[in-house]
Design a protein around this nucleic acid. Structure first.
Lengths: 207, 207
DNA sequence: ACTTGTTTTAACCGTTTGGTTAATTCAACT
DNA sequence: AGTTGAATTAACCAAACGGTTAAAACAAGT
């Protein structure tokens, strides 16, 4: 029933992802995306009605992958140290495969009017907030048991996510400041698995 | 010799800053900037020849203010704890006055071709790299003395800067995840002065 | 062979964009 | 009053933009 060789739609999505990640909603040009996908500009509007629709599609996919899936790792019954290590490993690996995603999402969130995103967020705000609350509760429990030092769980998670995500968001800057080449910097990012886990554990060990 | 009431040039710069910060180079429109500055669109090209020139001007100013001025704080001869506290206080206060600057700079860095920025960076790359090296040396010295735990200084500084800057870069996201309103979030950011300093000190205390 | 519904193309359209031009206003000096 | 050089405006321009249209190509069923 379809001509559609090698998945025109998915080729469009791949091309759009690359260009939107690189230039954002404002900087991306529809014709550029079409060309990168090896098709006509009109085809874009045939598959996705407008630039905004196409952008939304890319954005939703991105934010769903970035939303930390605490849930999975939390379920496993293991010591805090192991949970932390597993989460850090998992998250750094995921970011290494999608290094441009965080900055893309954060830029989009700031550049677009609220109303636009309120709807998109409804898909995952509740689950995310719920799973964050779950993490908070678990952390409180461990503080009560004296396993980790007492501190505001919001700041604890913020510290963790900052140290994990920021080096990806700021990679061009940090690369230049450190005078590193791309390979060295990738190595640096890999090292952060161990570094961040250790740093957290040291910061949280009871006094 | 001039008509120029109340500094047309500076009014343009103010307007351009607001709009570029909000929408980036791609999303900003020259007429929008002109209107925000209360002038004609042609005036923009009279004062700054092109959109790119205007953008560069804003960008340079931003990156110069963001480049952490370790130098000043390092000179003072005081214990590590105090140096850290002073730097964190200083940097958070500065970011609170310019909350949109970091994301603006990081987006610009990724969206623009390298050649464009190589030139801009030449103004401050050397001093920044030098002052970072100075920090590394000081940190090494303190590790040798056993004042702080031994770890890669690059990761140490990355952790510090991540925890400081990321909550500003990700403010729309974190605000939503925490279910906070803008005022609550500003309070949260203020709290980070103490939180980040404490967190660093705990993470770095010798075993 | 004919119909039907989907996929693809080329050409086109109205609007917006960054940028220019030529003429005007203005302030200061002579 | 006239000159000069900078500040300002309105009108304009070509290019780029997102999006549309009408017609063609294609695949599948009958």
């Amino acid at each position: 029933m379809t001509t559609e060789q090698a998945g025109t739609e998915s080729r469009i999505l791949e091309a759009a992802k690359v260009i939107f990640y690189e230039k954002g909603m404002g900087g991306a040009r529809m014709e550029e995306i079409a060309e990168a996908a090896g098709i006509n500009k009109a085809m874009l509007h045939y598959y996705f009605r407008s630039k905004e629709k196409l952008f939304q599609r890319i954005f939703i996919e991105a934010i769903q992958q970035l939303a930390p899936q605490f849930a999975r790792i939390l379920q496993v019954d293991e010591p805090f140290k192991d949970k932390l290590t597993h989460f850090v490993d998992f998250y750094v690996d995921m970011l290494l495969e999608r290094p441009y995603m965080p900055l893309f999402v954060l830029s989009a969130l700031q550049q677009n009017p609220d109303a636009f995103f309120e709807e998109l967020f409804s898909h995952l705000r509740m689950p995310v907030q719920a799973s964050v609350q779950q993490v908070f509760t678990q952390l409180q429990a461990m503080m009560d048991l004296g396993e980790i030092r007492r501190m505001d769980p919001r700041h604890l998670i913020t510290n963790l996510m900052s140290m994990l995500v920021f080096p990806f968001v700021a990679s061009p800057l940090i690369t230049k400041v450190l005078g590193a080449d791309p390979d060295t910097y990738k190595q640096f990012l890999l090292e952060r698995k161990k570094v961040v886990a250790d740093f957290m554990l040291h910061a949280l060990r009871p006094e």
